[in-house]
Amino acid sequence: MTADLLLLLSQYGVYLIIAATFLSCFAIPMPSSLAMLSGGAFAAAGDLSLWAVALGAFSGAVAGDQAGYWIGRKGGAGFWQQLRARPKAGRLLQRAEASLHRHGLLSVYLSTWLFSPLGPYVNFIAGATRLDWLRFTLADTLGEATWVGVYVGLGFAFATQIDAISGLLGNAVGALTAGLVTVLLGRVLWRSLRKPENDG
């Protein structure tokens, strides 16, 4: 798959990177990290402009996040209310919502790059629960700038080891995200053990 993506990159250049980062914001499986790493590598070789790669990746990602937020805000509120009304899952979702609003900036910031697999869901929930748009946008643009800086920068610096870097980062982000989910679910389990009477 790496080779196919790189062949497309030599053909479509920055447009491919914009498309990949934009679509990845909708939980569509997109090799966006690989696209950014490869863009950085092509920039190092002189086949693409570093600024065009970074700006393309950044604008694609921010546009995708905004789309996710507004889809949630315009179309997701009812769906979210329905889920919240369910007896068991509802309480969990209410807690998730409260936590997102308490740590809004940090949650959105980290979900764009460190826990990037969660990004699409955070965008949607932020919109559906009407997290303040300005705060969302601020945290989101900062986060995407970090994401793009790290991946395009590493691709540029390690231009001849794209495969190695891409595998390492993919697995590390996977482990971190699964770790976060494990901790959050563990907390829920821990609480329900300590307060059995609340758990009808």
């Binding site: 068991k88 969990l92 697995n171 590390a172 996977g174 482990a175 699964a178 770790g179 989910v181 679910l185």
Partner: peptide, 20 residues
């Protein structure tokens, strides 16, 4: 459901961690 999800994500964490 939550216990299953917890064990699943724990397994995923180990899987990705070992691969890294």
């Amino acid at each position: 459901v939550i216990l299953t999800a917890f064990l699943l994500s724990l397994a995923l964490m180990l899987f990705f961690g070992i691969r890294a």
